[in-house]
């Protein structure tokens, strides 16, 4: 049985199609990423899977429970870390977790050990009796992750878990997530608009744009499908070098960028020696050379026709509206 299975999951806000017939299957024990710019529909998908929003049509199974008809069972079996902060800052860290355990009916006998375990995972054991008011934003995030895990959910939803955090806190959170996967039998769904995050953490990634899934696979396979790699060479005679490369027809494209030559081609690894050879045969001295594999950014650009960053700017207004409606 899959941890999550959606069947033509659709959500409309008025005339706006926020999520359009999405079909995804998430296997048990994997980290699955929903990648896309703000307003692409990631949070709306998550909200429906968490039973916060009712789908306009279609449905989904989470842990085998239907999100429309068995909302309460779904809720019991999932943990959620929202994009916006949701801890009570007038309570201590521990009190927040205790309250959560009470709301989710964690047996009293397991409550304390379970809370201690999660505090340890996110390295907050020594600060847990302080008011959350005094926590940094990174600590609050960690507390929220611990809270989402206190009732041992089978599926954990992380909605933009590292948004607004400094690189160091972000690294920390990634390491907790990896650690978590080792110690618990859990499936993690995360949304992100950081390529690096999806690339580093996720076993599989779905690229979401305008409410639809435009591509879904392992990060590496997505990159491979793109197939284009780049060799960047700096020589003492760039113009001549470009000419010679063109003559051999090994490259998809050759161009001078600044004081370097950029060659895009398939199978760069095997062709690299030939590229060096061409230079030496024509007496062109190479000053530097490096090979670049495609990044997930390139994949995104390929499938959506726009860079992730500019996409997020363009859609932030719409995303804000959708989020407001969810609230």
């Amino acid at each position: 049985m899959n941890a999550i299975e959606t069947m033509d999951l659709t959500k409309k806000f008025g005339n706006l199609m926020a999520v359009d017939s999405v079909n995804i299957q998430v296997e048990r024990g994997e980290i699955f990423g929903l990648l896309g710019p703000n307003g692409a529909g990631k949070s709306t998908i998550i909200s429906m899977l968490c039973t916060i929003l009712k789908p306009t049509s279609g449905t989904a199974l989470v842990n085998g429970y239907d999100i429309v008809r068995q909302a309460s069972l779904v809720r019991k079996s999932i943990g959620i870390v929202f994009q916006d902060p949701s801890v009570d800052d007038r309570l201590t860290g521990r009190e927040n977790l205790e309250m959560h355990a009470d709301l989710y009916g964690v047996p009293k006998s397991e409550m304390r050990s379970q809370i201690d375990k999660m505090l340890e995972l996110v390295e907050l054991s020594d600060r847990c009796n302080e008011f959350v008011r005094n926590y940094s934003s990174g600590m609050r995030r960690r507390l929220e992750i611990a809270r989402g895990l206190v009732h041992t959910p089978k599926v954990l939803f992380l909605d933009e878990p590292t948004i607004g955090l400094d690189p160091q806190s972000r690294e920390h959170i990634w390491s907790y997530i990896r650690e978590l996967l080792k110690i618990e039998d859990i499936t993690i769904i995360l949304t992100t608009h950081y390529m690096e995050e999806a690339d580093k953490l996720c076993k599989r990634v779905a690229i979401v744009d305008h409410g639809s899934i435009v591509a879904m696979d392992k990060p590496d396979s997505l990159k491979e499908k793109l197939g284009v790699e780049t060799i960047t060479v700096k020589t003492q005679n760039n113009n001549l070098y470009v000419e010679k490369i063109k003559e051999t027809h090994i490259a998809k494209s050759v161009a001078i960028a600044g004081d370097e030559v950029k060659i895009t081609l398939l199978n760069a690894h095997t062709i690299l020696p030939l590229v060096v050879d061409i230079a030496s045969r024509n007496g062109i001295k190479i000053e530097s050379i490096y090979l670049q594999e495609p990044q997930l950014d390139d994949v995104f650009l390929h499938y959506t026709g726009k860079a992730l960053r500019e996409g997020s700017k363009e859609l932030s207004g719409m995303g804000a509206i959708i989020r407001r409606q969810i609230k």
Partner: peptide, 15 residues
């Protein structure tokens, strides 16, 4: 509670 997002945490709880 609503403004600080805490209400959301309560509203998704199985209660």
């Amino acid at each position: 509670d609503r403004q600080f997002g805490f209400l959301k945490e309560i509203l998704v709880a199985p209660i």
